[in-house]
């Protein structure tokens, strides 16, 4: 009787499902392992001061990644997230200096980001060009524009109210930017699971032609996804300059790799239709903890890059069903 039961239970979990299970829990296990490892490696790691710093660092990445997750979920890719963050950051600082917008600059940042995202979306959806190519191009355009605006220099801002949006601590040891990021992540998780928009992202990623054959306005939702991704990158850019007190030419450069790494390591599949925004938080934690912990352990910057890249590849190797990975759309 018992043996019979065990055979049925193994049948219930064929290899692919087992893989899916591993994919679900592994990121969480990795976070715990990293915390233990870095705690042993550096006494400064598990201190309130450091964790407060980590939450600040993680926030920009989390903001940018939550939006981009939707694009990955529908089977496309957004490489321009970091560039939008940079461009919006630069424009926000200039507007703050020129017009003294104050807190409302945050809204301007979101709107700007959304419109840059919309440009991506329109070209992608109407031009029928792979999103990889569209956003690779706009990555270069937006970055170039930002550098042109900044003239290669860092522009500082002087707006305590705006800076307080990011570095103030409404909750002790927890910077406001982290509250924004967590709030945005919660909201986007809701959007992902509880709204039509979220469901359509899964459907388009799972089978675009199925969506078409069901009368779903695929093109419109593709554009929406890029607008959302851009808006979140814009929010990330505005809050990042508030946190740093300046916009410099290197703002957002690490986001290109880090957003994709966080999303994929979290468990959202590049083939589309699998994963979700909730997982991206874990991915962001892994990437940020790696950065922070390796710094504290005095590992040099170059080696850090090697380790981070290896972690991303390993995560995908273990968790994704590669038979389904086709050419990226």
């Amino acid at each position: 009787m018992t043996s019979k039961k065990s055979t049925t239970s193994t049948q219930l979990w064929p290899a692919t499902l087992l893989r899916a299970r591993i994919g679900m829990w592994l990121p969480l296990v990795v976070v715990c392992a990293l915390v233990i490892f870095f705690h042993m490696g550096s006494p400064a790691f598990l201190t309130l001061r450091n964790l407060s710093a980590v939450s600040g660092q993680a926030s920009t990445l989390l903001l940018a990644s939550t939006g981009a997750t939707f694009v990955i979920l529908m089977g496309s890719i957004d490489l321009s997230v970091g560039a939008i963050t940079l461009l919006v950051g630069a424009v926000t600082v200039m507007l703050l200096r020129a017009l003294g917008l104050g807190v409302s600059a945050l809204l301007v940042g979101i709107m700007l980001g959304a419109s840059f995202g919309m440009v991506n979306g329109l070209i992608f959806a109407f031009g029928a060009i792979p999103s990889f190519v569209v956003t690779l191009g706009s990555l270069s355009m937006y970055t170039g524009l930002a550098w042109q605006l900044l003239q290669g220099r860092a522009l500082s801002l002087n707006s305590p109210a705006f800076e307080n949006l990011a570095i103030g601590q409404s909750v002790p040891y927890f910077p406001n930017i982290a509250l924004f990021a967590l709030g945005a992540w919660l909201f986007m998780t809701f959007v992902c699971f509880k709204t039509r928009f979220g469901r359509y992202m899964y459907i388009i990623g799972g089978g675009e032609s199925v969506a078409r054959n069901a009368g779903i306005p695929v093109r419109r939702y593709k554009i929406f996804a890029f607008i959302l991704s851009g808006a979140m990158a814009g929010l990330a850019g505005a809050l990042a300059v508030a946190r740093l007190g300046a916009a410099g030419p290197t703002l957002g450069t690490d986001l290109l790799l880090n957003t994709l790494a966080a999303i994929v390591v979290g468990g959202t599949s590049l083939s589309g239709g699998v994963g979700g925004v909730q997982r991206t938080l874990i991915g962001v934690l892994i990437i940020t903890l790696l950065d922070n912990g390796l710094n504290l352990m005095d590992v040099n910057q170059y080696v850090q890059n090697v380790i981070k890249g290896a972690v991303v590849i390993a995560a995908v190797l273990i968790s994704q069903d590669r038979r389904k990975l086709t050419v990226m759309k």
Binding site: G207, V210, G273, V274
Partner: peptide, 16 residues
């Protein structure tokens, strides 16, 4: 390839 997403559940396909 066009009628249903075979990786999705019965419920998700019915509501599609």
């Amino acid at each position: 390839t066009e009628g249903m997403i075979v990786d999705f559940s019965v419920a998700w396909n019915i509501s599609l």
